[in-house]
Amino acid sequence: MTLTGGCHMSRTILYARVSTLDQVIEHQRQQAEAAGFNIDEVVADHGVSGTTTLLSERSEGRRLFDLLRHGDVLVVRWVDRLGRNYDDVTDTIRRFMKRGVVIKTVINKLTFDGATTDPMQQAVRDAMIAFMAATAQAQAEATKEAQRAGIMAARTREPSKYRGRKPSFNRQQLTLMRDMVARGEGMSAIARATGLTRQTVQRLRNDFTAAEALLERWV
């Protein structure tokens, strides 16, 4: 940590987002440290979609906005950890740069800094931000389309096998659970409110994407 203007100790904060059980927060920290970053704190969201949930709507995303100050460095594995929505990602990066926060990526080693006053450097920086944000959204949309095509093919080949076991939860319960997780509610409170067991709440919380897909199969 280093001192910046006033008494604020500048920090390097890693923001990590994992949406499936196959992704691990610690891996993102290890990648960042291997790239030469000295991480002071890790802020992480679990089981949250970067496509449908804005950074400011995620429980730890909101905390990130509260934590970051002038002189801090925000590290992300790539811009898609901030989100996969073009408007949200570009707006988020600009908001942080206006605060004097420097955003750095582990992959490609990009740096987004709002301190430059040179118009050409600003133009190149803003174009890169736009390109990376557009790429993140395009990749998400391509993945979703591929998944949709695979689902349709599976339904056609083996409709009964594709659907699998009927879900033990419904759309209303999943929506309520997602809202409560976003508000930072604990598993016990969520279980009481939804009528689901703690084990079910934990399983769904770990992979909202899979839960959504299971409900879709039983529509």
Rank of each mutant, 00 (worst) to 15 (best):
T2P: 11
T4V: 11
G6I: 00
M9C: 05
I13S: 07
D22Y: 03
I25K: 07
E26I: 05
H27S: 12
H27Y: 09
E41N: 05
E41G: 05
V43S: 00
D45I: 01
G47N: 01
V48E: 02
T52N: 10
T53E: 13
L54V: 07
L54F: 06
G61W: 00
F65E: 12
R69T: 01
H70N: 10
H70L: 05
G71I: 04
V79S: 05
G83T: 01
N85E: 09
D87W: 02
V89D: 05
T90A: 08
T90N: 04
T92G: 10
K98I: 00
V102N: 03
I103D: 06
L110G: 01
T111C: 01
F112I: 06
A115K: 03
V124P: 11
M128N: 10
A140C: 10
E141L: 14
Q147A: 09
R148H: 14
G150S: 09
A153F: 15
R155S: 08
R157H: 15
R157D: 12
K161V: 12
Y162N: 06
R165L: 09
K166R: 13
T175R: 12
T175G: 02
L176I: 07
L176A: 08
L176V: 06
M177V: 05
R178P: 00
D179W: 02
M180N: 06
V181H: 09
R183V: 03
E185K: 11
G186P: 04
R192V: 07
L196H: 11
T197A: 07
R198W: 02
V201A: 01
V201M: 02
N206S: 10
D207L: 08
D207S: 06
T209L: 12
A210T: 12
E212W: 15
A213M: 11
V219Y: 08
V219G: 14
